[in-house]
Nucleic acid binder design. Sequence first.
DNA 1: CTGACATTTGACCATCTGGTCAAACTCACG
DNA 2: CGTGAGTTTGACCAGATGGTCAAATGTCAG
Lengths: 212, 212
Amino acid sequence: MPRDRSPTRIQKRNRATIIEAALDVFSQHGFRGATVDQIATAAGLSKPNLLYYFPSKEAIFTELLSELLDTWLAPLREIDPKGEPLDEILAYVTRKLQMSQDMPRESRLFANEIVQGAPRMIDALSTDLRALVDETETIFADWMDAGRIARVHPRHLLFSIWSLTQHYADFEVQVQALMTPEDPFAEAGAFLDTLYRRMLTPTVSPAILGDA
Amino acid sequence: MPRDRSPTRIQKRNRATIIEAALDVFSQHGFRGATVDQIATAAGLSKPNLLYYFPSKEAIFTELLSELLDTWLAPLREIDPKGEPLDEILAYVTRKLQMSQDMPRESRLFANEIVQGAPRMIDALSTDLRALVDETETIFADWMDAGRIARVHPRHLLFSIWSLTQHYADFEVQVQALMTPEDPFAEAGAFLDTLYRRMLTPTVSPAILGDA
DNA sequence: CTGACATTTGACCATCTGGTCAAACTCACG
DNA sequence: CGTGAGTTTGACCAGATGGTCAAATGTCAG
C-alpha cells in the first residue's frame, strides 16, 4: 500500500479517479449492489490495483461519504441569521434544488444509504448533523418568535425542504416517467417558491412588531 | 413446482408467508442486498423449499411489487372530484402519512427500487401510474380553474405530497436521529395540514365564482 | 390402507465477489 | 545508467450466493 508520507502525483490522481468512479457506481447500486470490479473498471484500473489505494470496498465507501457530507451540508451553513428570513429560506431552497439538479449522484448516494438504515452514517447523523440542525432550528424559531415568518414546526420545515428538493434527484426516474418532455427542475423551482412563500408569509405585518 | 391448478391450502399459506418475509428482507436491503437464504429463513423454510414456490429471487420480487402497487396507490384513487377540494387534498395527505406510519416497509421497498433507477418498475410507472397521475392532475387543475383552491403546478403538488409523506417512512432513521423523544408522525400531521392549508387556500373568495 | 401427487430436504454446482500475493514493471533521481 | 521505491497485474483463494436435483417424507382421496 502507499506510504503515509506526502502522496505522489500518481497517488493523487488515482485516488481521485477512484472516488469519482465509486460515486458513480455506489449511487447507482448502493453499497451492497456495487462491486469492486465495477468501480475498478469505471476508474480504468484493475481490481488489485484499486485495492492498492484503498484497503477495502468499505474504506472507499466511508471515504466517499465523509468527503461528501461537508459539501452536501454547505448550503445549510450559508443561512444567515441576520438576513431577511423569507429571502434566506427561499435562497436555501433554491440552493438545495440546484444541488439536486447538479449533483444527483451525491443525493442518491445518501438516499440509498439512509433508506437502508444508514448503517455507515448513524454516527455522523446523530452528532455533526444533529448539531447543525439544532442551530438551524433555533434560527427559524427566532424568526417565528419575532413574527417575521409564520409559525410552523421549525424542524419539520427543514425536513420539508430536504424532502421536496432531494425528491427531484432521488426519484428522478419516477419524476421523468410522469413528466414527458417538460423540464422538472424549472417547474419545481417555481412551485417551491410559491409553496414556501405562501406557507411562511406572516399573516400579521411584522412591521408592527418593531424594526422601523 | 406447484401445479397451475387451484392452489392447495399449504401453497396458499406458504406463498403468503414467503411474500411477507420477502417484504421484510427486500425493504431492508434492496433487491441486490437481499439473499434468498435470508428470505427463506425469515419465512421459516429451507432455501430449496422456497424455490419450490417461486422459480427465482427475481420472481418473488416482481410478484411482491405488483401485489403492493395497488395497495400503495389506493389512497390516490379515493380522491373525490366532487368533494370539497381542500378537504379532499388534506384527507389524501392524511391517508398517505398514515400509510407511511403503518407501512414503512412498503414505502422503503418502492423507495429503494426507484432510487436505483426502478429497473423492475419502469413499465408500471409509465403506464398504470402515469394514467392515474394524469387523471389526478386534471382533478386538481379543474379545482384551480374554478378558483376553489389556489393555483400551483398540479403535478408538482402531487409530487410534493408523495415526497413529504413518504419522507417520514423512507428516511425514518434520519428523522429519528434528529428528533429525540418526540413522535415525528404526530407533529408531521400538524405541519402538513398547515402547509397545504396555507398553500392552497384561495386568496379570493371562491363564493364569488358561483356555487351559491 | 394405499397409491399418486404435493411438499421438503441434504447434497451439490457454477458463478460471483472481496481480497491476497508474489512477481513484474515503471519511474524518479543520484 | 542503476537502483530502490512506487505501481501494476495475473493467478489465486475462500466464502457467499442463486439455483438444481434426486431422494425422502407428508397428505389425502378413494
